[in-house]
Design a protein around this nucleic acid. Structure first.
Lengths: 144, 144
DNA sequence: ATGGGGGCTCCAGTAGCTGGAGGGTCAAGG
DNA sequence: CCTTGACCCTCCAGCTACTGGAGCCCCCAT
């Protein structure tokens, strides 16, 4: 049937906020043609692409990865190894982030467990944060 | 002995980049007095504060949390429960983030395992991303 | 005097949106 | 025919926590 939708309907169809869809167009990710009144005009193809991006983003792929995945999605002669490579790289990043956060979690749990949490001023958390040395610590990952 | 240091020395003492220290001053986190030539001038107090923030940031506390923790650090009549509350809240956020990433990890691992990764165009990863429904999925967390 | 290694400020950019101002468009109801 | 309200549009600013660079000043050693 290839109906056409305006941005509000596309938003519901793709589970993406209107603002986000406009942003994706601005960065050249999914571009919709315009109708006479200047409104964006979404056909089946654009809706599919928006949903594709929505799903990829929900899996934590970066916008740049989404761009590459979209072009592979369009390319019917793509090799599955090209896609797999991106997914594996992303998976490695996710793994690394989990390990980093788990190390944080251990540190924080330890600190919280040793703090009385009452009305007295003595606080092992503050004491730890005020400790002089940096090098002496075991784990000290930077957060970004 | 309360020597005084310029920003480069403070940077080494606190394990923070010079740019970051200037940024912390700009946002009112740790402010150093100036010497006659306009250079920032760090005494023991400021160095301690910078190190405090460096450590808190490395534990993943937000800048705003660091601001609160610093004021509690300054306040010798603080109650340890005020500090503990911030740490516990942060720990809950870390826990939530880990769970979210683990869910991602499962999804991605599953996808990667089912992709041949060869030169043929068939790709279960692309197929999954192109799947029509959103609601039908089990897990679909947004990333921020 | 000159060269190098500091220091200074201000501006712009990163990722991925989100909110708001200020305005145009469209369909329904009075 | 006019108004109301729900849409749509663009442009600008802001969020987090920095980071990089330009263009300039300052201090010390040779």
């Amino acid at each position: 049937m290839d109906r056409e939708w305006n941005i509000g309907e596309a938003s519901k169809a793709a589970s993406l906020p209107v603002k986000t869809i406009r942003y994706y167009e601005e960065i050249g990710l999914v571009i919709a043609p315009r109708s006479e009144n200047g409104y964006r005009c979404y056909g089946d193809t654009e809706i599919h692409k928006l949903r594709f991006v929505q799903r990829a983003r929900s899996l934590g792929f970066s916008i740049e990865n989404c761009r590459t995945l979209l072009s592979l999605y369009d390319d019917k002669n793509r090799a599955s190894k090209d896609v797999k490579k991106i997914a594996e790289e992303h998976l490695r990043e996710v793994d690394a982030k989990i390990r980093e956060l788990q190390s944080l979690q251990e540190n924080l749990t330890h600190l919280v467990e040793h703090c009385a949490g009452d009305t007295r001023p003595d606080c092992p958390i503050i004491d730890d944060l005020s400790a002089p040395a940096i090098e002496a610590r075991k784990t000290n990952p930077r957060i970004h």
